[in-house]
Lab assay of single mutants.
Amino acid sequence: KRYRAVYDYSAADEDEVSFQDGDTIVNVQQIDDGWMYGTVERTGDTGMLPANYVEAI
């Protein structure tokens, strides 16, 4: 699945990823209600991200 960031996010922990509004997130997997795991296409960084900061595309 592919998602697009709708807000900027700065990683708060080493297992999270930072991204900017408009970034595409690929290979996304749902972890639980609030978190997903995926790769930021622009940077190649992979990690956890907050589900409410992205939307499906």
Rank of each mutant, 00 (worst) to 15 (best):
Y7D: 08
M36L: 14
I31G: 08
G44V: 02
I25K: 00
D15W: 14
G22Q: 05
D32L: 11
V26Y: 09
L49T: 02
Y53I: 06
E55P: 02
Y9V: 01
M48C: 09
V6R: 12
D23A: 02
M48I: 12
M36R: 03
T46D: 04
R2A: 12
N52Q: 13
V28L: 07
V40R: 00
Y9R: 05
G38M: 00
Q30K: 11
F19E: 01
A11D: 02
Q20L: 14
W35I: 06
K1G: 13
V28T: 08
Q29G: 07
D13N: 15
Y37F: 12
G44T: 04
T39A: 03
E41P: 02
T24Q: 08
F19V: 04
G34S: 13
S10L: 13
A51N: 06
Y3Q: 02
T46K: 09
M36H: 05
T43A: 02
V54T: 04
A11P: 06
E41R: 05
A12G: 10
I57N: 05
N27R: 09
I57C: 09
V54H: 02
Y7N: 13
A11G: 08
G44E: 04
D21R: 15
V17R: 01
G22H: 04
R42Q: 05
V28K: 02
I31M: 11
A51E: 07
A12R: 15
N52L: 11
R42G: 04
G22V: 02
Y9G: 00
Q29L: 13
V17M: 03
W35P: 02
Y9I: 02
E14I: 12
M48E: 04
T46M: 08
G47K: 00
G22I: 02
G34M: 15
V54R: 01
V6G: 05
Y9H: 05
D33I: 10
T39E: 07
Y3F: 10
D33E: 13
V17H: 01
S10P: 06
Y3M: 06
Q20C: 13
Y53C: 12
Y9E: 00
A12V: 11
Y37G: 02
S18W: 02
G22M: 04
V28Y: 04
D15A: 13
D13Q: 13
Y3V: 06
G44M: 06
E41S: 07
A56I: 14
F19C: 03
M36Y: 13
M48R: 15
D32C: 13
